[in-house]
Amino acid sequence: MDVTRKNVDLSRATRLLNHGPVTVITSAHGGRSNVMAAAWSMPLDFDPPKIVVVIDSRTLTRQLIEASGVFGLQLPSVGFARQTLAVGSNTGEGLDKFAAFELETFPGQKIDVPMLVGCVTWMECKVIPDASQRHDLFIGEVVAAYADSRVYTDNRWHFDDPDLRTCHYVAGGTFFATGEAFEVEPAPRAAQA
């Protein structure tokens, strides 16, 4: 299936994570690359756009990110959940996860990291050096963001195809698909006392 990746305005990039989905992190340095799932990520700031992700100090992904200073953050769809579980359940030490799980990639726009076909959004991030890394937190400035136009256009999600919904990881191989959208009218402002 032909996927059209459309750039997302960087001032709106953090909207891609606002609903709390599981993410997949890609990294590369010195001829090695790796991919891992990360359930703990969130938007941090708008201008410039920043995200936070937790990456354990014992992982190959962590080593590669610390060496390169960059990483890719992608949102997998329901149709990519099996691969998400696989890359999150296996170590990259001694295993080429891209080959083992037949993951198709394409090059990043602004960073030298493989990005995953099969996801619905992609963010390319540069690490902002910070003392929080000793707590396994990485702050990344989003330098490029793009999304599958079948699910994200005009700064809005639209999940018409159930297989293209983002997902949320719980534990033990259990995921939840992002649910139905609904809107409410804002409450009137309360009178100031």
Rank of each mutant, 00 (worst) to 15 (best):
R5G: 04
R62G: 05
T105D: 02
V53F: 08
N7E: 09
F182K: 00
S33Y: 06
G92T: 05
G20P: 07
L164N: 06
A193C: 05
K110T: 10
V3M: 11
G30R: 10
I111E: 03
A38Y: 04
E93S: 05
G172L: 08
T153E: 05
V127N: 07
K6T: 07
R15D: 07
G140S: 07
G108E: 09
M42R: 01
G140C: 05
N7P: 02
S11H: 03
K110D: 09
V3A: 10
E185R: 01
D163H: 11
L137K: 04
M115G: 01
V53L: 05
R134Y: 15
V53C: 07
G30L: 12
E141G: 03
S33M: 07
E104M: 07
V70H: 13
P43M: 07
N90A: 15
D56S: 14
V143E: 01
I111R: 03
D130P: 03
P21A: 14
L116I: 02
D2C: 00
T174Q: 13
I51W: 11
A99C: 10
K110V: 13
T59Y: 12
L64V: 13
V52F: 05
N90E: 11
S68H: 05
L16Q: 00
F138I: 12
V53Y: 06
S33A: 15
G173Y: 14
W40R: 02
D96Y: 09
G72L: 02
S77C: 14
T174L: 11
K110N: 08
A81G: 11
P162F: 15
F138A: 03
D163T: 07
T14C: 14
D160G: 15
R134G: 14
T178A: 12
S27V: 10
Q109L: 12
A144K: 00
Y169R: 03
L137C: 13
V170C: 08
R82C: 06
V120N: 00
E66L: 15
V87T: 02
P76N: 08
H135D: 15
D160T: 08
D47V: 10
D130I: 10
A171S: 11
D154F: 10
G79L: 10
R165D: 11
W157R: 01
P129M: 07
E141M: 11
R134I: 15
D2V: 09
T153F: 05
A13H: 01
L16M: 11
V24K: 05
P107I: 04
